[in-house]
Structures are given as C-alpha cells and as structure tokens.
Design a protein around this nucleic acid. Structure first.
Lengths: 103, 103
DNA sequence: TTCGATGTTCGACGAATATCAAACAATGGC
DNA sequence: GCCATTGTTTGATATTCGTCGAACATCGAA
C-alpha cells in the first residue's frame, strides 16, 4: 500500500463546538499560527515542545475539526489551513488567529 | 451576610484558550444565545435541560471566562453578556454567536 | 418564624483529554 | 537490502470535564 490519505471530514459534518474545542488548546493554537494561509508547511517549523506522538495527536484533532489538510509526502507530512472551513464558519478562524497571542 | 457578589475576573486576565474552551460546550453556547446584548436575563428563559447544579457550574465557567456578568437579586440570578470582553477580544463573541446554530 | 423558591457547594462517577515512552510502519538514501 | 528519518499507534497515566443528586444557604412571602 502506498500512502493512504488521512480521513478528512466534510465541512458540513463539522460542528461549531467541535471547532471551538479544537481551537481551545494552546498547542493547537500555536500550530495554526505557524501555518501560512494557502501554503503547505512541514512540522519542522512548528516550534512546539511536545513529544512527536503528542503532536500527531493534535494533528488528528485539527484534521477532524476540519481546520487543516494533512498530506503525506515521502516521509514527512505537509499541513495547510483548510480554506473551505471558512465557507461553513465565515470569519471564525480569521478572528481567532487575529486574536491569538503572538507568543 | 447579605449577598456577596460573584468573583468576576478582569478581562485582562482572561486568555484566548480559556474563552474558546468556555465557548466550546453546546449547553454554554445555548445559554449565551439566549442572552440579549445589553439586557439582563433570568435563568428561566434558558430552556436548557440540565440539572440546576450543572447549570450553576456552567455559569461559573462563563463567568470565569469573562463572558457574562452574574448578579444576584433576591432569590434569583440575573445574567448578562459582558461588553468589555469585546475590548480584549474584538469580534470574537459576535462571530461565534453569529455562527451558532439556531437550534 | 416557618416555608417555598432559587441557586450554590460538595462528593461522586464515567468519559474525554493531554501527555509521554515504546513499539511499529512507511519512505528514501546508502 | 539495510538503515536512518519521520510519523503513527498503542498502552499508560494523571488531569480535567460534564453531569447528577443530596445537602446547604439565602431570600421573600405567608
């Protein structure tokens, strides 16, 4: 089997509490802040001091909340902000990221 | 002792993850939706099917997140949306309430 | 003063969460 | 083919969370 893609929910299946919960963790918020809209990023730039397994866990949460696209290329992963979540919850992610602490 | 007021944090002490966590529960979201900005409400109108103790718990969470003002008048409580949280996190509550399901 | 109405506090309980280390899997380079 | 790199999965653990019922506190009314 080559890389089977990660399961990404349809944005219509995602609920608001689910998204807000995904956004309510400092580590996940840091990850999202490190993502440049419309651009894929590798994990290297996240600067988050958690174990790899923990990071992997947070990625799954963000993915299931419809916040990110998660793709595997070779041995590393490429992550990007999902644009279509803005169709479901217009302005939500923009507002949160705008207010997120710079730290 | 007459009614000692509930502790309300200063908005400067409230963190974004804390607010988002408070917003990520369906019951709390329902409560906030039932609140009319600039107007005090009693618990009667919340239409939330949880035990009184649970409701009280959610109120404390909302209060500690700086989302509501909680005042006791006689035997019942009056709750209202805190306006000054919008100074700390402009547009956040408005965006979330705009996107909250009508149910 | 006694009682009813309205919240709060206090365990308690099950479920979910965040975290880690260790084992596992897949890929690309040697 | 072998191995290092990079994530994922799997326990394990400690914590937090949402919920309830029961006991308690406070106030207003009878």
């Amino acid at each position: 089997m080559t890389q089977e893609p990660y399961p990404h929910p349809d944005v219509s299946e995602v609920t608001l509490p689910e998204v807000l919960h995904a956004l309510s963790d400092p580590v996940r918020l840091s990850i999202l802040q490190a993502l440049v809209p419309g651009q894929e990023s590798a994990w290297s730039g996240f600067m988050v001091s958690v174990a790899p397994s923990t990071l992997s866990h947070h990625m799954k949460v963000l993915r299931n909340a419809g916040l990110i696209t998660h793709r595997k290329e070779g041995t590393r992963c490429l992550v990007s902000l999902r644009q279509d979540l803005g169709e479901r919850f217009p302005g939500l992610l923009d507002t949160v990221l705008r207010l997120a602490p710079v730290a």
